[in-house]
Design a protein around this nucleic acid. Sequence first.
DNA 1: GCCATGTTGTTGCAAATGCAACAACATTTT
DNA 2: AAAATGTTGTTGCATTTGCAACAACATGGC
Lengths: 222, 222
Amino acid sequence: MSTLSIFKDITDEEKKHMFHCFTPVTKVFFDGEIIMNYSYKIDKIGIMLDGKAHLSSIDYEGRQSILEQLETNDIFGEVFTPPPENCQYFIEADTACDVLFIDYSQIIKRCPNACPEHSRLVNNLLQMTAAKAQAMALHINILSRRSTRQKLIAYFESEANKSKSEYFTLPMSLSALADYISVDRSAMMREIRKMKECGILSERSGANGRSYALTGGYAEDL
Amino acid sequence: MSTLSIFKDITDEEKKHMFHCFTPVTKVFFDGEIIMNYSYKIDKIGIMLDGKAHLSSIDYEGRQSILEQLETNDIFGEVFTPPPENCQYFIEADTACDVLFIDYSQIIKRCPNACPEHSRLVNNLLQMTAAKAQAMALHINILSRRSTRQKLIAYFESEANKSKSEYFTLPMSLSALADYISVDRSAMMREIRKMKECGILSERSGANGRSYALTGGYAEDL
DNA sequence: GCCATGTTGTTGCAAATGCAACAACATTTT
DNA sequence: AAAATGTTGTTGCATTTGCAACAACATGGC
C-alpha cells in the first residue's frame, strides 16, 4: 500500500499556492492534552501529522468509551464522528502530536481557482476517509460480537494480522482495551484468564513488554 | 443540508465526457437479491441510486449481524468495509434497487485529462464517504453501550431526532433491529416490554404501522 | 382454502456480565 | 523516601443476557 498522506503528490511549492484556497493551521500538543473538544457545529477537521491520540466518549453517567485510536496520517473531526446528545466527545493526545487543522467547508467548496493541487488534496482526503471507514468497520465488527470472548478474539485476530507474526503487542493498556471493546474491565480480565487456561491464548514477556498470541483451534472452541 | 449525490453539480453533458475516464455500470436488483458479495480484493464501489438494502455479516457460527442500512445516495464497498476472516459479508436488497458501480482505483488515480467533472465527482464522493462515516459512528455509539436498554435508548434517540416528531416509525423489523444493535432478539423484546412498563417508552398503532416514542425522564432512570 | 414463511411475543434456565471493592505492583511526582 | 497516580489482577454477588423452545399472528403463493 502506498503511504497515505494528506500531502501525497503535492510538493512544497504547490502547498504554498494551495494555501491561497484555504488556511491550514498546524499546532503541537503534549501527552495528555485535549486536541479537540467536540461541541456542536465545528467544521474543522484534524489531520494527525505525527503522534498518537484517541477519541473518547463520556456519557451522562460518566461511562467512558474509546471510539477511535488515531495514529500518524489519520483524520478526525465532527464531520466524521458527530457527538450524540448527552455525550461528550474529545480527542486526547497519547504522545506528543503535530496536528494540522483545515476547515471542511473550504475543502469541499468548488475551488474558484480550479487548482490541480486542490483536487489532489481532496483525492487524498477521500482515501484517508476510506481508511477511517475501514477502522470504524473493524470496530463495529468487534462490538457486534455477543460475548466478551468473541470480542477479544476478533480484536486479537486483527492485531495478529497487522503484526504478521504470531505474537503481537497491544498498542494500548488493558484498561483502555476494555473501553475500546466496551466491556467491564474486570469481566475482561476474567475472560482473558479463562482463555489462557483453555489454551487458546498465550502470553509472553519480552524486552519491549508483553505480547500475546492466539493459539490454534479457538474457532471451534465454545 | 444540500442533497448529497454522486452527480451533484455534474450535468448530463459532463457525465458523457467523464465516462472517458472510467466506465460506470448501472444495474437493477429486485427485493431479496444479493447486490454484492464481499469476497476479498474487490475494488468496486457501489452507489445506491434508488432503493434500500443492507450489509449483513454472517460469522462461522452462523450468527448474523446487520452492519449497515443503505438508502438512496449511500455508498458501499470493500474499500470502506473490508470483511474480516471467517466472516461472510454481503449486500442484500430490501426493495427494488438501482445501483451504480465504479472501480475505486479509477476514481483515485490521477486523472490524465484533469477534467473538472472528475474532481467534482471525487469531491462528491468525499462528502458521501463522510456521511457514511457518520452513520458508522452512530452505530458504534449504539454498540458501545453496555446494556440492551442503553442501546435501545441510543437508537431510539437517533430515530426521534431524525423524525423531528416525538413519535417515530422503525425503518426495519424488530428482528432486524436486534441484529443491528447486536443483542438477542428475545432479550430485546423482554427489555422493550420492561421499558413500556416503566413508562419510558410508549407505542401506538396508526395507519402506517406502529410508532414509538421515548417519554421523558429516561435519562435518570436506571 | 391451505401451506410455507416470516415476524412478534413469551418463558425457563444456565451462563455471562456489570458492579463494587479490594490488593499488588509499577511509575511518576513531590 | 514518601506520596500520588495508574495499571494489573482478583473476588462475591445480583442482575442481565443468550439460548432454546414454543405459540400466536400476519403475509404471500399456490
